[in-house]
Design a protein around this nucleic acid. Structure first.
Length: 629
DNA sequence: TCAAGATGCGCG
DNA sequence: AAAGCGCGCATCTTGA
């Protein structure tokens, strides 16, 4: 709430055909404009000529900027320790104020809300950006090719409107008890900027090996598929549907009323899940399903990852970069966008960091010779958060019971076998029990977020889930009633999520119910707790002077991945468990007033490649951290 | 030829 | 009548 802030905006010479992020060494800092103590300052110059800015930043209590990850990136390149800089990001403030409304609502046709500086200001009736400079920038004209005065005026104008916007947002967030949420978003930002700069590194030998294996497989599968089908394009859902349902005469899947299940716009389904359920009788039918399944898997692995990975290894020293988007998702977790690279033969390709196939994590190694990859993740995080939010006795008991096996509970309901019988058989290596547990896995958490329809076996489990966790079910239903009444939900930590078009049908069905069941749980787990945990981890590492030996390189919803010097693996374990346990509890208590009284767990893997090495599990309970065997 | 829409599939 | 949630990227289809 202090008035000792510094408002900052920078302009850059963009040489990456994108937005001039500090990640790309070809981009250059061109101009910084800032305001401190009511004084306006501007400095033309590169990252080596910004001493006055650095000095002023040191005097300020916090920074104000729009999309501060950009400025953090440049400040880091200037040489500033960005972990010591607190920011108020007006883009994130607008994001918090909008809650989930930022992404719009396709069902009711609500368009996404822009949170660009210009859009934020226009909504409030402030002066808009200069349209000419804006058009130039949007079309790749470099600021070094524009009249200096025009660029300067624009930069100063941005500082002015950013401050205006900040003051308005700060009041709104304060009055609605959401400053804490903004704080959580803002303290994560400099870490994200560091991760983006670091990049991810691939093991050339392993990539080559897997690439060759997949290519060979792909070549032979493509041939077989062409022979079997007479040459349809397996990637075309239209051609596949025609072949499946017209030529091979498969029966379409039907719902209970006998209507065929179709894609949203009425096409016949060809996705893996639907194909899995089709009943193949003839040899031709069986062969087609088997071929299509393998071809889709291999084909997508090649076109979405391996082509790109191979090029990264051959032409970019095995390192590639992606960005984190901090203001895209409805629940406020992160998303990621790959930075496209022109490959030698496959055109422009990119890879984001949150959906890398689990099988390919083993292709990632440390960029630094001889270093290790360490990963820490929040154990059963969403379920534990659900137990906390639902204050559910049974869920708490299940979490406390270290022998508890959720998937066996699912299988027990689906296959009508007593839990202990199934579990013992599974532990004894019984094939049937193991298969049942495996096939039950995807169903385990579906009812947590309102899943209710399916086969009789599935529906038996969904009902059993509701009976097993009645307190949670009641709390979730309470959320739905709250939204029906107020059109928005206020979470226990202050975040608000909005459903302006919620309605209840005469049947009692509520259109947004499953989203309402999900948001608080997904959000507390992956938009609050994990950001808090990884921010703490980063700060402890720096406070202990270990930032040269423990380097974050990725984060995926419930985890953080670091490169680690082999002598510091034990430090990583110690710091990670503390950050994911005690630090989170303390922060939730101090910033949000939440007494999070369900144990938090962390799983840690360290190895020469990502996701390799045996996992060590830790539990944090009542102020203690304990290693779990 | 291009952009937008549709579909499928990877992750947590 | 039916109904887990949240994303981004590659490819094909469609329509101008």
């Amino acid at each position: 709430m202090s008035s000792e802030y510094l408002v900052l905006d920078v302009e850059t010479i963009v040489n990456d055909n994108r937005f001039g992020s500090a990640i790309d060494p070809r981009n250059q800092l061109a101009l910084a404009c800032w305001k401190i103590d009511g004084k306006w300052k501007a400095k033309w110059g590169s990252e080596f000529e910004q001493q006055e800015l650095v000095d002023d930043i040191r005097r300020a209590k916090f920074l104000v900027f729009h999309h501060g990850k950009y400025e953090y990136g440049w400040l880091s390149r200037i040489g500033v320790d960005t972990s010591q800089l607190l920011g108020f990001d007006t883009m994130l403030a607008e994001y918090v104020l909008l809650g989930n409304l930022v992404s719009g609502d396709t069902e009711s046709g609500v368009r996404p809300t822009s949170i660009s500086l210009d859009a934020c200001c226009q909504r409030r009736g402030y002066r808009p950006k200069d349209p000419i400079v804006d058009t130039w920038m949007a079309n790749g004209i470099k600021v070094s090719e524009m009249p200096k005065k025009w660029v300067l005026d624009r930069c100063i104008q941005d500082v002015r409107t950013t401050e205006q916007l900040f003051l308005d947002q700060r009041r709104q967030l304060h009055d609605s008890n959401r400053l804490g949420c903004l704080y959580t978003r803002c303290i994560l930002t400099p870490l994200l900027a560091e991760i983006e700069k670091e990049g991810c590194h691939l093991d050339k030998n392993r990539v080559e090996e897997v690439y060759n294996e997949y290519s060979d497989r792909f070549t032979s599968l493509t041939k077989e598929f062409a022979r079997a089908t007479g040459g349809i394009n397996w990637r075309s859902s239209k051609q596949v549907a025609k072949y499946l349902y017209d030529d091979l005469q498969f029966e379409e899947l039907r719902d209970r009323s006998g209507e065929p299940k179709r894609t949203p716009s009425g096409g016949r389904q060809t996705n893996a899940k639907a194909l899995e359920k089709l009943k193949a009788i003839t040899e031709a039918q069986k062969e087609f399903l088997a071929l299509k399944k393998q071809l889709s898997k291999i084909g997508s692995a090649i076109s979405k990852n391996l082509d790109y990975f191979k090029d990264v290894c051959e032409s970019h020293n095995g390192t590639f970069h992606a960005e984190f988007n901090q203001s895209i998702t409805a629940t406020h977790r992160l998303s990621s966008t790959g930075i496209a690279v022109e490959t030698a033969t496959k055109g422009s390709k990119s890879c984001q960091l949150t959906n890398i196939p689990r099988n390919f994590k083993r292709l990632f190694s440390a960029r630094r010779d001889g270093w290790l990859i360490g990963e820490v993740d929040g154990a059963q995080l969403e379920f534990r958060v659900a137990a906390f939010l639902g204050n559910d006795k049974q869920a708490r008991a299940d979490i406390a019971d270290r022998e508890f096996d959720a998937h066996c509970v699912t299988a027990s309901a689906m296959y009508e076998v007593p839990y202990t019988e199934l579990r013992n058989a599974y532990l004894a290596g019984d094939k049937v029990a193991s298969d049942r547990r495996q096939s039950a896995k995807p169903e385990t958490f579906k009812p947590l977020y309102g899943g209710s329809k399916g086969t009789p076996a599935q529906e038996r489990w969904y009902e059993a889930f509701k009976r097993r966790y009645p307190d949670l079910a009641a709390v979730q239903l309470g959320w739905v009633y709250e939204v029906l009444e107020k059109k928005y939900l206020t979470t226990p930590w202050g975040m608000r999520y909005y459903w302006p078009n919620i309605r209840m049908a005469s049947s009692g069905y509520v259109n947004n119910a499953s989203a309402i069941y999900n948001y608080p749980i997904q959000a507390l787990a992956t938009a609050e707790i994990i950001p808090i945990a990884i921010t703490y981890l980063w700060h402890i590492v720096r406070a202990e002077g270990l930032d040269e030996v423990i380097v974050p390189i990725n984060t995926v919803h419930d985890s953080l991945v670091c490169e680690i010097h082999p002598d510091y693996a034990a430090d990583f374990r110690r710091i990670a468990t503390e950050a994911f346990g005690l630090c989170v509890l303390r922060y939730l208590s101090v910033v949000y007033g939440l007494d999070f009284d369900v144990p938090l767990g962390a799983g840690i893997k360290i190895g020469e490649h990502w996701s390799e090495g045996t996992e060590e599990r830790y539990e944090c309970l009542k102020g203690n951290i304990e290693r779990v065997k």
